[in-house]
């Protein structure tokens, strides 16, 4: 009997850590991850749990007796659907719709199946966003197709380079350089009208919007380590984009 309780607690612990890891990997706020993990722990009869989440790791102490666990987070991307799915599982676990075993299996299946949008659709979305932004920022209508094509290309390049190399910010930098060169070429040939409009529109899909939002919310919730590190990441990404564009403009 005691043995069974032990394995169950072990499973509950695994379940909490997996949920936390999946949420951070998908790009959730630190405060939400901690909140979710503590709620799940409370529902599994671990009322005195403590967890400390940073963008690179989770420390979780289930109770006074059990040992504290640590999980390292190696990669983060932007996958809000994953956050929403894990959130739904934790809600159902807390509400009692899921047993612990079901919740764990559900989380495992979320981890193994990446149900993201098709990459081609995402590239198309980047192109549409670039075109819309060009107009919203008051660019010339004739430039829309160029901004769309260049924005889409920039997005593809970022995606490819992020897969090739693990050095952060390099992908954004290269993509920004390429966007600048292409925009220059289009305007130089005489097809495009306004260089600044095309560049601003095409660069928008690279802007780290999620990081900005998360950094602000984390800082306000009192998670200074996560807030500052996410803010730094957002700043460096923005700086990489700016440096890439500046490099092209300086010639």
């Amino acid at each position: 009997m005691h043995q069974a309780g032990e394995t169950r607690r072990e499973l509950a612990l695994e379940c909490c850590l997996l949920a936390g890891r999946l949420m951070i990997e998908g790009g959730a706020e630190t405060y939400r991850v901690e909140d979710t993990m503590e709620r799940m722990a409370t529902s599994q009869l671990m009322p005195n749990s403590h967890c400390s989440v940073t963008p690179t790791g989770i420390m979780f102490s289930p109770s006074d007796e059990q040992p504290t666990r640590f999980v390292r987070i190696r990669s983060r991307r932007t996958d809000l659907k994953q956050v929403a799915l894990v959130n739904a599982v934790s809600r159902r676990l807390v509400a009692g719709d899921f047993s612990l075993q079901e919740a764990y299996e559900e989380l495992m299946s979320i981890e193994s199946s990446h149900t993201s949008f098709d990459l081609r659709l995402q590239i198309f979305a980047a192109a549409v966003a670039s075109g819309c932004f060009l107009l919203l920022f008051g660019g010339a209508r004739a430039d829309v197709p160029y901004a769309a094509v260049i924005g889409g290309t920039g997005f593809i390049i970022t995606d490819r380079i992020e897969r090739l190399t693990r050095i952060r910010f390099f992908a954004e930098f290269v993509a920004a350089v390429l966007i600048g060169v292409l925009a220059y070429a289009v305007v130089g040939v005489g097809l495009g009208e306004e260089l600044d409009g095309i560049i601003i529109g095409s660069v928008m899909p690279l802007v780290p919007g999620l990081l900005i939002t998360n950094a602000v919310r984390d800082l306000m919730a009192g998670h200074f380590v996560s807030g500052l590190s996410k803010g730094a990441e957002a700043f460096l990404t923005a700086f990489a984009i700016g440096a890439g564009i500046a490099l092209v403009l300086s010639f």
Partner: peptide, 24 residues
């Protein structure tokens, strides 16, 4: 669902891209 799902795309549109570009 978490609030960030809805806010991110709205926030990103307010980012001052034009001014940052002009500064650069």
């Amino acid at each position: 669902m978490p609030m960030i799902i809805f806010s991110v795309s709205g926030i990103i549109m307010l980012v001052p891209g034009g001014r940052a570009f002009n500064a650069m």
